[in-house]
C-alpha cells in the first residue's frame, strides 16, 4: 500500500485554494472567448439559433462574398480616431508631466489634480459633460458663450464630431499618462539632471537627452495600454455621439457592438470582434518589437 505522499497533499491543498479563481476565469473569460469565436461562424440573430455558415461572416466583412457597405468607412474612422487620440494622450501626458514637475511643487500637484478629474468622474458624467459643452443649440456651453458675444451658434457635433470624440478620449488618456510619467520623472535621480546641467545642457536639452530617454518604459507601457484601449473601447463614443452623425464617429468596436446589440446580428458582430482580437495581438507584437523589448531584457555583460 502506498503512503500518502506529503507533496501530493500539498498540491491538493493548493489546488483547492486556487480552484475558485480558476473556475471564475474559465467561466467568465475563456468560455465567452470560445463562444464568441463559435458564434462568429454562425448567422445567429435574435432567435439565438446556432446555424453554422462557415467563413461567410468573414467573407462578407472582407468583401469577398456579399459586401458590408460601411466597412471602409469604419476602418477609416478607427484609424483617424487612434491617430488622433494616441498622440494627444502620450504627447499631452508627457508635456503636462514635464511641465508640472518643473514648476513649484504645490502648483504641480494642483495642476495634476485638475487634469486627473476626468479619471475620477463616472464615464456617464464625463460623456455628458462633452455633450452639454458642445450642444448644438444655444443651450450648450460654448454656444451660450457665442450667443452672449452675439455670435451665431455652431453645430459642433455636425461640423467636428470626430475631433470632439478624440478630445474627450484623449483628455481621459492624458490623465493616466501624466500620472505615470510624473512618477517616473520623480524617480529619476537628481544627480543625473544635475550632471547634465554641469555638462552644459539647457532645460530643453536635459528634457530631450536625459528625461525623455529615461521614460522609455513608461512611454512604451502607456502607448501599448492606450493603443489597446482606443482600439477596443467605445463607451465614451457611444455616450457622446453614439457613432453619429450618420457613422461619422462609428469605430470598429462600436460598430461590432451595434451589429450585435442594436441590429441583433450576433453572428456578424462576433466575427467583427474576432477580427479585432487578432488586430490587438498583432498590434501588441508590433509595439513591443518597435521598442526593442528583447534587447532591453537581455543580460548585461557585467564585469566586477
Amino acid at each position: 500500500m502506498k503512503n500518502p505522499n506529503i507533496t501530493d497533499r500539498k498540491y491538493l491543498a493548493l489546488s483547492v485554494f486556487i480552484s475558485p479563481a480558476v473556475v471564475l476565469v474559465i467561466l467568465f473569460y475563456f468560455v465567452p472567448v470560445i463562444l464568441t469565436l463559435l458564434i462568429a461562424f454562425t448567422d445567429m440573430d435574435r432567435s439565438l439559433q446556432w446555424n453554422f455558415i462557415g467563413f461567410d461572416n468573414f467573407a462578407k466583412l472582407f468583401g469577398l462574398k456579399g459586401k458590408d457597405p460601411f466597412i471602409g468607412k469604419i476602418i477609416k474612422n478607427t484609424l483617424i480616431y487612434i491617430a488622433g487620440a494616441l498622440p494627444l494622450t502620450i504627447g499631452g501626458g508627457l508635456l503636462l508631466s514635464i511641465l508640472s514637475m518643473k514648476i513649484d511643487r504645490n502648483a504641480g500637484v494642483f495642476f495634476r489634480a485638475i487634469f486627473f478629474i476626468p479619471r475620477a468622474v463616472p464615464p456617464v458624467v464625463w460623456g455628458f459633460l462633452w455633450v452639454w459643452a458642445f450642444e448644438g443649440t444655444r443651450y450648450g456651453l460654448f454656444n451660450a458663450i457665442r450667443t452672449a458675444l452675439g455670435l451665431p451658434v455652431v453645430h459642433w457635433f455636425i461640423k467636428y464630431p470626430m475631433l470632439i470624440v478624440i478630445m474627450a478620449n484623449g483628455f481621459l488618456g492624458i490623465s493616466l499618462a501624466m500620472l505615470v510619467f510624473s512618477s517616473a520623472i520623480a524617480s529619476i535621480p537628481r544627480d543625473l539632471t544635475r550632471a547634465a546641467e554641469i555638462d552644459g545642457a539647457t532645460d530643453w536639452q536635459i528634457t530631450r537627452y536625459v528625461i525623455i530617454p529615461m521614460l522609455k518604459w513608461p512611454i512604451l507601457t502607456m502607448t501599448a495600454w492606450h493603443l489597446m484601449s482606443f482600439v477596443n473601447s467605445y463607451v465614451y463614443i457611444m455616450l457622446i455621439t453614439n457613432g453619429g452623425p450618420y457613422y461619422a464617429t462609428e469605430v470598429w468596436s462600436l460598430y461590432a457592438y451595434h451589429a450585435a446589440f442594436n441590429r441583433y446580428r450576433y453572428g456578424y458582430g462576433a466575427s467583427l470582434i474576432t477580427v479585432l482580437v487578432l488586430v490587438n495581438i498583432a498590434l501588441l507584437f508590433i509595439v513591443l518589437k518597435a521598442f526593442g523589448v528583447r534587447k532591453m531584457l537581455s543580460r548585461g555583460k557585467i564585469e566586477v
Binding site: 543625473l192 536625459v210 529615461m214
Partner: peptide, 8 residues
C-alpha cells in the same frame, strides 16, 4: 557625483 550619475 557620489553616485557617478552616468546616463544609463
Amino acid at each position: 557625483f557620489q553616485s557617478y550619475a552616468l546616463y544609463p
